[in-house]
Amino acid sequence: MFKKFIEKSQLKSPWIVHLDCGSCNGCDIETLACLTPMYDIERFGILNIGNPKHADVLIVTGTVNHRNKHILRNVYNQMPEPKMVVAVGACGLTGGVFRDAPNVVGGVDKVIPVDVYVPGCPGKPEAIIDGVIEALAKLAELQKEGRKKK
């Protein structure tokens, strides 16, 4: 009964944590713009929080470099299962214009598994919201599989 309640609230009100991983700020401010009155993701029950241990969805912007890959892995490991990762922007997907730069590892998926890719340089707020919704559909599937196993 309690488990069902959690599963339902995970879908109806997902909590997201945003990690800037070497982006140029373009995608960050667009992610932040999602919170503001114009786009207001809180009307979908989506809450942006700072603590990865409370979060269901991780939004990562920007390229990964040799120093922040540890942080990224650390934040990802702290999140409880089941979790979703949304990579935002061209840099988060493949490395973008920076892919050949000396201190760049590449896209986010070189370090952690990514579920949804949001393209764009920077990704528009509409696209980012869409990406989170997409991630929720995947999350629902995961939950179903989890129930079948039992």
Binding site: H66, R67, K69, P102, N103
Partner: peptide, 12 residues
């Protein structure tokens, strides 16, 4: 300052 501990080179 910038480079990770596992990178030992001068990139520029």
């Amino acid at each position: 300052l910038y480079l990770g501990d596992d990178v030992r080179r001068t990139p520029f």
